[in-house]
Amino acid sequence: MFRLICDGEAVTRSALVRRTGMARSTLALRIDALLAHDLVYETATTASTGGRPPSRLAFNQQAGTILVADLGPSHARFVANDLAGTRLAESVDELPISAGSEVVLPRVQRGFEALLVALGQPPQRVRGIGIGVPGAVDFACGVPVAPASMPGWESSIPDWFAERYDAPVIVDNDVNLMAFGEHRAYWRVLEHMLYVKVGSDIGCGIVAGGRIYRGTHGAAGDIGHIRISGHDEALCSCGNVGCLQAVASGRALARALSAQGLAARDAHDVVAHVRAGEPLAMQAVRDAGRHLGEGLAGAVNFFNPSAIVIGGDMADAHQQFIAGLREVIFQRSLPLATTNLQIAPSRIGDSAVAFGAATMVIDRILAPDSIDRAIGADAVSA
């Protein structure tokens, strides 16, 4: 019933009775419970001609606040949204995740508090929290799984916030949240999609059957450690050699360009050189796209996605990068696997993690079983 109201498919009592088959008395109790919890509101549609005025029911997207933290290797983005995912406030903090959870989580809490103060809202208004981190996560309990970039993050992040907010907390790998947000915003009609983040590191979010696929322990999509032929000299942070991440990531490209005398500290510098028309950088980025294509060709044959979306810092140089990527994927993948395959840059950009996290949290707290728990005994039928 609540979903019918939210989607605008049935917004009057009579329409809800017809769509749900509920008795009017049962329907009235459930609507009263939703009204009491501010999840819906009621407005008159026309002037009354006698008796109870006709009215329409609508989802109250201002009935609570969703807090989101996008924790990157060196920064944190904090966002407050309403229950429809509309952004209400945002801030950015220079915050290295390598400082460990004992340092980072209190800073996240202060970032959340600042957003609530700016909005004039108390902590009790928080309905859910979403947090993205740059490493594998045991999604069921919200614990990072020994990511190299996150030393000192062995405890449950949801448990830490449970002491401060009476709200569910979702923690996931940042690229999964990017994939979820991009799919929901622009590719919802597709069942199967790969979202590849190419920044300092390389990772992949997998959408299978319209849902995020994480694997048994949350490690699905860690394509950065696929071995690329002919690069045995490239030492990866994982201890192996020839990993895609050690050859084609923004960090690897910056290192290679610096060795050729072109100043580049990170992926942003690489992209800046590409935009300036620097031939060395343009060739390096196209070659990186080819290397990624080598790693993804097997995934295309195995998974047969409808689309591959490229996000992360290197997406800003997508013309050269995607040209190299397409060249190798269509050369090495089976024709049937590439029929109608779309390869495109991310359209959400820097907001992908925050949008994906907010949307994932909203889906959870507005799911039918969550609504039933929220309104509790008030919804008991006559």
Rank of each mutant, 00 (worst) to 15 (best):
residue 170 I to V: 15
residue 164 R to W: 01
residue 161 F to P: 02
residue 159 D to Q: 15
residue 164 R to I: 14
residue 180 F to N: 03
residue 159 D to M: 13
residue 187 W to C: 02
residue 159 D to C: 04
residue 149 S to A: 08
residue 167 A to N: 04
residue 188 R to A: 15
residue 188 R to L: 15
residue 166 D to Q: 15
residue 159 D to S: 13
residue 171 V to E: 10
residue 158 P to M: 11
residue 180 F to V: 00
residue 187 W to H: 15
residue 162 A to L: 06
residue 163 E to D: 12
residue 162 A to C: 01
residue 186 Y to N: 14
residue 151 P to M: 02
residue 150 M to N: 09
residue 184 R to D: 12
residue 161 F to S: 05
residue 166 D to F: 07
residue 189 V to T: 09
residue 178 M to S: 05
residue 190 L to S: 10
residue 155 S to W: 04
residue 173 N to T: 08
residue 179 A to G: 07
residue 165 Y to D: 03
residue 185 A to L: 12
residue 188 R to P: 00
residue 189 V to A: 14
residue 164 R to M: 03
residue 172 D to C: 10
residue 156 S to C: 12
residue 181 G to K: 07
residue 183 H to P: 06
residue 168 P to Q: 10
residue 190 L to P: 01
residue 158 P to E: 10
residue 163 E to N: 11
residue 173 N to G: 03
residue 179 A to D: 10
residue 154 E to L: 05
residue 163 E to F: 00
residue 164 R to N: 01
residue 173 N to E: 03
residue 175 V to P: 01
residue 188 R to T: 14
residue 177 L to H: 02
residue 164 R to F: 03
residue 178 M to E: 04
residue 190 L to A: 09
residue 168 P to W: 06
residue 188 R to F: 08
residue 178 M to P: 00
residue 165 Y to L: 09
residue 170 I to Q: 05
residue 156 S to R: 09
residue 188 R to V: 13
residue 162 A to Y: 00
residue 155 S to L: 12
residue 174 D to I: 06
residue 162 A to R: 12
residue 155 S to G: 04
residue 184 R to T: 15
residue 160 W to I: 10
residue 176 N to W: 03
residue 187 W to G: 04
residue 174 D to G: 06
residue 169 V to S: 02
residue 163 E to Y: 01
residue 188 R to G: 11
residue 182 E to P: 02
residue 185 A to M: 14
residue 182 E to Q: 11
residue 149 S to W: 00
residue 159 D to H: 14
residue 189 V to R: 13
residue 160 W to T: 11
residue 176 N to M: 07
residue 178 M to W: 05
residue 186 Y to D: 11
residue 151 P to S: 04
residue 175 V to G: 01
residue 190 L to F: 14
residue 179 A to W: 03
residue 189 V to D: 13
residue 182 E to G: 09
residue 186 Y to A: 14
residue 182 E to R: 09
residue 175 V to Q: 03
residue 157 I to G: 06
residue 157 I to A: 09
residue 164 R to A: 10
residue 150 M to V: 05
residue 149 S to P: 00
residue 161 F to E: 01
residue 179 A to N: 06
residue 185 A to R: 12
residue 181 G to H: 06
residue 176 N to I: 08
residue 168 P to I: 13
residue 190 L to C: 10
residue 151 P to R: 05
residue 168 P to E: 12
residue 184 R to E: 14
residue 154 E to I: 08
residue 181 G to E: 08
residue 187 W to L: 13
residue 157 I to T: 05
residue 151 P to T: 08
residue 151 P to L: 05
residue 167 A to E: 07
residue 156 S to M: 11
residue 187 W to N: 08
residue 166 D to K: 11
residue 152 G to C: 07
residue 180 F to I: 05
residue 168 P to N: 09
residue 178 M to V: 08
residue 165 Y to N: 09
residue 167 A to D: 01
residue 165 Y to V: 08
residue 185 A to G: 00
residue 158 P to W: 04
residue 159 D to V: 10
residue 168 P to L: 13
residue 163 E to K: 13
residue 150 M to H: 02
residue 173 N to R: 10
residue 170 I to E: 07
residue 185 A to K: 13
